[in-house]
Design a protein around this nucleic acid. Structure first.
Lengths: 149, 149
DNA sequence: CTGTGTGCAAACTCTTTGCATAAGT
DNA sequence: ACTTATGCAAAGAGTTTGCACACAG
């Protein structure tokens, strides 16, 4: 599950690189944004919710408010550093892998994971109705834990 | 958009049929459930949210509370009369077409529509991780209105 | 009658907003 | 200094819940 399922996703790890990344996106490298970017991009692909990112930040002694978490996630998404994942549930998830790919969604515990590229291809792209164009195709393969009762 | 994109979905229309449908699902045919079922199943496939169903009921002079709308939608879903559609956004949508099919989602105005069957097939089904089995595959083709600026 | 369903209002979760304070350049 | 970000608390949207009353069988 930790194999290289990213193709050319963020490899930024070091602090200076994160700083540059933010600058290039037109975002001032503030304490919070730096810290959040490091959490997000330092360890390969991740799928996080506002709450989980906040928890993680608090654990790492990075003082940041939930409001700032939301601001930051949206700013990063607009800047193309993150991708919003539309799975089920009321929560919004963000994916640090912005490549074209699809997701598994574990229904039992609301977990999102990437589907390794190559494992899944959308067959025929449907014809969009008149006046519309396709913006994106999202595939969610919903999983259920196998239980041997 | 109103062509026969349903395969064998609900064709129940008449009041007695709706009554039977509810009975068979183990639901007592109360005023509200009857009225809501008629709204839902009388006119081909529909994609509705709790709010839109409530609005429609109010318009038709069917007195029903939002709480009952939610109850009913969930009961119908459990009974297999409806299917919950996981598209984007905070709202939950329900589909009167319970067949295996996928959806267009118009980003501009949060509208859900069926993708005509045959127009889209999932290519290769991905291998679920160990200990998991696939419960369902949801494909959402997100649409954007074409604008000639 | 008896039990299930319904309506109302309050509670809850997730997310957004307004405004004073703090931090970046 | 001057501008943009942050934090807090309050507001908002969507959904759920608890309990008294109403209705179906």
């Amino acid at each position: 599950m930790d194999r290289d399922q990213q193709t050319h996703a963020h490899a930024a790890v070091t602090r200076p690189e994160v700083r540059t990344m933010l600058r290039q996106s037109g975002l001032r490298p503030t304490r919070q944004r730096m810290a959040l970017a490091e959490i997000l991009f330092a360890h390969g692909n991740r799928h996080i919710s506002a709450e989980s990112l906040h928890d993680e930040a608090v654990t790492r002694r990075v003082p940041v408010s939930l409001a700032t978490i939301y601001n930051t996630l949206h700013q990063f998404t607009e800047a193309g550093l993150l991708r919003e994942v539309a799975v089920d549930g009321s929560k919004t998830y963000f994916d640090t892998n912005t490549d074209d790919h699809h997701h598994f969604f574990v229904e039992d515990d609301n977990e999102v994971m990437d589907i390794p590229p190559g494992q899944m291809g959308v067959g025929r792209t449907p014809e969009p109705p008149d006046g519309y164009e396709i913006s994106r195709i999202d595939v969610v393969v919903r999983l259920r834990r196998i239980r041997r009762d």
